[in-house]
Design a protein around this nucleic acid. Sequence first.
DNA 1: CCGGAACATTGACCTGAATCAACAAAAAAT
DNA 2: ATTTTTTGTTGATTCAGGTCAATGTTCCGG
Lengths: 251, 251
Amino acid sequence: MTETSFNPSSLSTGAATGYGEPVTDCATCVVRNRAICASLDAEELALLGRLGRRQRVKAGHTLLWEGDDALVVANVLEGVLKLVVASADGREQIVGVVFPSDFIGRPFGKESPYSVTAMTDAEVCIFNRKSFDDFASAHPDLQHKLLRRTLDELDRARHWMMLLGRKSAEEKVASFLLEMSERLSGQGCNSGARSGFELPFGRQQIADILGLTIETTSRQLTRMRAEGLLDLPSRREIVINDRAAMEALAG
Amino acid sequence: MTETSFNPSSLSTGAATGYGEPVTDCATCVVRNRAICASLDAEELALLGRLGRRQRVKAGHTLLWEGDDALVVANVLEGVLKLVVASADGREQIVGVVFPSDFIGRPFGKESPYSVTAMTDAEVCIFNRKSFDDFASAHPDLQHKLLRRTLDELDRARHWMMLLGRKSAEEKVASFLLEMSERLSGQGCNSGARSGFELPFGRQQIADILGLTIETTSRQLTRMRAEGLLDLPSRREIVINDRAAMEALAG
DNA sequence: CCGGAACATTGACCTGAATCAACAAAAAAT
DNA sequence: ATTTTTTGTTGATTCAGGTCAATGTTCCGG
């Protein structure tokens, strides 16, 4: 089994107030200006920082299980994580992919509606959900940021519903590559929507995002390469040669 | 063409400040305690009321077009509306269905990411988006309600993504019927999750919700009737005979 | 009550993607 | 360096659901 349970205590540094390392300085945080924390002033930030813990999560480890009590929320500092809904018989659908500065978890909820699993080694800034809820309730600006983010996520999810329900395998793969090229360039250090990028996940996970099988996904990519649309320099690297054609295929 | 543009001026009552009828008394509003307005006290309610207009929308008419500037947001007072994402070649995916007391629109956004069309004759309490944004920004409780609602919608959307990406036609139809039986009983005057209910939409629309064709949808329903799982007393009525079996089919 | 339009069902057939299976290549472990 | 494991590709075949076409049913206006 590749995906194992996340065990807080195994990573504890012995801090009295919880697991993970205490947050030392939010002001110098890598995502200070991009995460929801951007809505806070120095004083509030210090207050929130006291509630948070920095936490490393290894690739394949699960931070939150679907159906379990959602005890924590978090900001992503580094790495990529997936949100997964599974059926009783093991089929999986990835319903979201989160990048650095994105927010994870279900505030004001009881149980997590999906699992959150690291796709790469990751680092998150984790909060006890209840304390976070209280803090958020007392800080309208933070709630406003959270609302905007949630609205954006909802738009993205609905757009993805169109892809899942109505697009062909070819359209799905083309749409996926274009979206990933955009999202990865947003955080990666390189310039705008570049044509070459490294996916943080393998074929099976692409299939789980697109509602396809691994075979169909692989065949589509191979075919696109054969047609000169893209190059596949290595397993996880994609170079889009003809962006316009790709956009046409995406529908 | 069944679905026609919604023309505000054609329904104007001549109120100087906008289209639709001015709101007279929020305190007696049918959704007073269920809509986001429930977060407001009498004074705030009066203030918000002044910004709103009651607006009837006939079945098939579109309130908001995908890609257009999202000039308004609204509360649903009566009727059922659909949120639709369409592709260039006309394929449609329904990405949301809204009932009385639900909120419509995209606050803090520019263009609407989907069309909003009435599936039945409907009545909404409509606001200019900008004024609503301002009002919301000044009223944290309202924003909190909106955040909770948006989080719930996001959960629902993600759950639906699993259905669209990974379920068979049979599982889709079974899941749909169960969810509708729940949601319709929530607002309908009858008791808990009853087994008989009237859908507010036809076969094509069910297909557009499930990412299927109308033929497949129809065949699944016919087969379920043949197997005694349900009755179809009329076009839009559904009676679930064996709820447990239906849940088993839903996966 | 009749006629037409919109909506729904049913059948025959086809096809895109799933499934089953073998193999190849890369990565990890020894 | 070599074995083992994991991941990805390719081919043959099947089948669920789409497409095309005909027919049946309900609804609505006159």
